[in-house]
Amino acid sequence: MDFFVAQALNGLIIGLLYALIAIGLSLIFSVLKLVNFAHGECCMMGAFVSYYFSTLFGINPLIAVFLSMVVVFLLGVAMQYFFLRPLYTGAVERKDEYAILITFGLGIFFQNLAMSLFGPWTKKSQDFLSGVTSIGFLTVDNNRLVVSFVAIAIVLALLLIINKTFVGKALRAVSQDRDAAAIVGINSHRINMLAFGVGVALAGGAGALIGPIFLISPMMGILPGIKSFVIIVLGGMGSIKGAIIGSLLLGEIESLGSIYLLDPTRGLAYKNAFGVLLLAIVLLVKPTGLFGERHVRME
């Protein structure tokens, strides 16, 4: 029973990290109407930026998380400006095809860039807070606690921005009807840029938070990327509520499933396969997800 609760807690913490990544992907999907196949790589970039901020410049790792979010935000803005903007100015034919290939290509580019710049070896980031905290029979790594609180804080801040501010209103307006938003004077290019920047910054933040708990490497983004796809398909493309619920669900399924379903040696290896399998099933049974609307094609 104790073990079960410990694993459930672990699942919750992982789920919160997934939530950050998946909300970012969902935000991008709802505004830009495309799936960012470079999302996992943006997560990876965040992890490395934060790693170097704290190891090279001695910046407090927690502050480094926020700095890395800023850097990844700027990266996202640049990606949007140079590669995605043509989708909305009519400069590109076969939009669906272009959106898939260009974001996938950017992801591959980032992977190779990270391999070259940072080397293929895994690295461990500095602790946020060393030691452990005991709550009753549970013993939790302090890093994980910090990560959970920061992740929750970021999600709450984002929800506040989206629901209560003018910027949030503009985001929602463009996501619902790009043309109508343009008529009332919203610059949809700027909103695209903002949504993409914020979306990937969330993934970058998650990457930076992962650093002290797991190891970081240039290929670390692939699985979180795929899992965030799983989550937004599960939760419904473009639904932020769905992304949160889906994340927590996947975190738990992975944590609990790996101990209860399979023999332990393989269980660990197959842990990552659960999400993929889940994606396959959801895509087949209900491609619009649990809460989502019908997917619109770009053209």
Binding site: E97, I100, L279, A280, L283, R297
Partner: peptide
């Protein structure tokens, strides 16, 4: 269609 197929095959 499009992105769903890409997602599925990556997975």
């Amino acid at each position: 269609r499009g992105p769903y197929l890409a997602l599925f095959t990556i997975a």
